[in-house]
Design a protein around this nucleic acid. Structure first.
Lengths: 340, 340
DNA sequence: CTGTTAGCGCATTCAA
DNA sequence: TTGAATGCGCTAACAG
């Protein structure tokens, strides 16, 4: 009820033709001032238009614009789980990039589910996004994105595919070498889900570094879990209860390492004294844990920049970038104790 | 060039009229089968259409649909910082809700900046979202959302506004009472940014609970920081270095509490023995910290459900919901020690 | 410098 | 049960 009061609140939001009418110009002119082109507009006219827009509280309709331009001025991001610290940070940085360039960000949370991931990708693509950045659970089975430029983060399945790669193997090798430098000899791997981004290469790095020193690197030293605190806790507990418990662990993500630390505490195993730990990611999680985690730090801002650039300027960056990572020593590896 | 080769690769993605042509029907019929209505379609015809869609790899254009329907089948979420565990979890749950209902989620990260927040809101609204959920830095200065239903999370500025409120005051009182039950008498407050969601009411609850017991509750017992680990660390350090150091702290968020725990460790202050801590949020951060945080747990899934429902069925839920919270005892309050 | 106008892809009313 | 035609709001020729 009380909808036909009239004159008070406009039924629809103002459109460009309302503005044109009020300003006494054509709709084209309104476009020209809104978009600052492509044709010039007389200063006086422009002022009238601006004034009319103001009066009407005019807001351009981005959807109509998107239909016309075949571009929504938006990019999509699909991750397995935004509530994971690393992916959250990634979403934040990408949102930053997008915003700075005038793009909106559509987020698809795959909920660690491959079907959900497919559905999210299809939904985003149908929304006419200008590009898609995806951290896939299984890059081989990602839905077809047609003409939407798509960049995979830290994974590559098909050859010609756009990717931003992180130096997973190198990082893992750094981590393991560091552990060896601390005199550790039985270095386990707390790995992530098969096929998850970076996992295979981090694993390879772990193995290669161990191999080079003639240290044990068999599958019996590997445990796996999801990228989560709970996963790291369970897998860590299993590992730490073994008779031939390792004296160090390289972990494929910060959140898993948080779980591992909790497991060590529960088992009464001192870190770093009895168990040295180095994780991959180097998010804020690593800085404020107990003990603070020595970690292979991913430059998330750089990664987001590279991804954003690649996705919007397809062609140029077809060379797969390799983002460097670096070891940031904190306490979980034993460095602090050594220093003391 | 090579555009008239035909039959090979279509220049544009297939549209409804390509499908119609191939199936030998009108575009209206294609609509009917795509949308399963509003008119019936003969089984044989439907089969032909489905077949044509398949052949062409047809994907409906959500933007065109949105323009026509004046609804993008999408909702927006604006938070101060997605990389904050709590907001990340919220984004995830809301994404879940939206997905289940066939909606996409547009995410706006305000980057803890009020101007950025305004811009994000405007951008989302212009994208014709069907509803907006916002956790605002300053609800009074949120951009006008016009006819887009908007629900504020845990804050209310204007009277008629849609909100999903959490029982902040009650939760804070529970926390403080619990601390008092452990014999603590000098209970500080590590508070959040002024105007941030829930902060004022949590502060009120802290004060009221203390007041009721005749315990000190002056402003000198309050320190403030952003909702971040780093903020909690700095403010915590300041607090713990005072001559009249408190014997307990109620913290307005998990991430701040993580920072406080790190500060206590740095200062050599034992938690919970010398300093009991209870935080607000109860995310996974609380479960795997050292010691695990006793926390007032927010039912994030419930909150997301309430917000989603409210935003899409405006009118119905105009009564401001009050979501209950509950204290989950872990170790930082001293319960474990008591039990032992 | 400004006005007219033809679509962008889709849903739907009106005819058939 | 199906087809033809209209318009959602906007951009960008094309024509003054």
């Amino acid at each position: 009820m009380t909808d036909e009061e009239g004159t008070v609140a406009p039924t629809h939001a103002a459109t460009r033709s309302d503005v044109a009418r009020l300003a006494g110009v054509s709709t084209a002119v309104v476009s020209y001032v809104v978009n600052n082109g492509p044709r010039p507009v007389a200063a006086a006219t422009r002022a009238r238009v601006l004034d009319a827009m103001e009066q009407l509280g005019y807001r351009p309709n981005a959807v109509a614009r998107a239909l016309r331009l075949r571009s929504a001025q938006a990019i999509g991001l699909v991750v397995p789980d935004v509530s994971n610290t690393y992916f959250g940070a990634l979403a934040r940085e990408l949102s930053d990039q997008a915003f700075a360039a005038g793009y909106a960000l559509l987020l698809g949370d795959a909920d660690n589910d491959i079907d959900r991931e497919r559905a999210q990708v299809e939904s985003l693509v149908s929304h006419q996004i200008d590009g898609l950045v995806i951290v896939s659970l299984d890059p081989a089975s990602v839905a077809e994105t047609g003409s939407t430029p798509t960049v995979f983060l830290d994974q590559r399945s098909r050859p010609g595919q756009l990717s931003v790669m992180v130096d997973d193997r190198g990082g893992a090798m750094q981590a393991v070498s560091h552990l060896i430098g601390h005199g550790r000899t039985r270095i386990a791997l707390l790995s992530g889900p098969r096929g998850a981004p970076g996992v295979e290469r981090r694993q390879q790095g772990w193995r290669d570094a161990l191999q080079a020193e003639g240290l044990p690197n068999g599958d019996e030293l590997i445990v796996r879990s999801e990228f989560s605190r709970a996963g790291g806790f369970e897998a860590g507990r299993e590992l730490l209860r073994r008779a031939d418990r390792p004296d160090a662990v390289f972990v494929t993500s910060d959140v898993q390492a948080l779980g591992l630390l909790a497991a060590a505490r529960r088992e009464g195993i001192g870190v770093p004294d009895e168990l040295a730990v180095i994780s991959f990611d180097g998010t804020e999680d690593a800085v404020y844990s107990d003990p603070p985690l020595t970690a292979i730090e991913q430059p998330i801002r750089l990664i987001a920049e590279a991804a954003f650039t690649a996705v919007l300027q397809k062609g140029l960056e077809r060379s797969p970038l390799l983002i460097p990572v670096e070891l940031v020593a904190r306490e979980s590896c034993g460095c602090a104790a050594t220093a003391r």
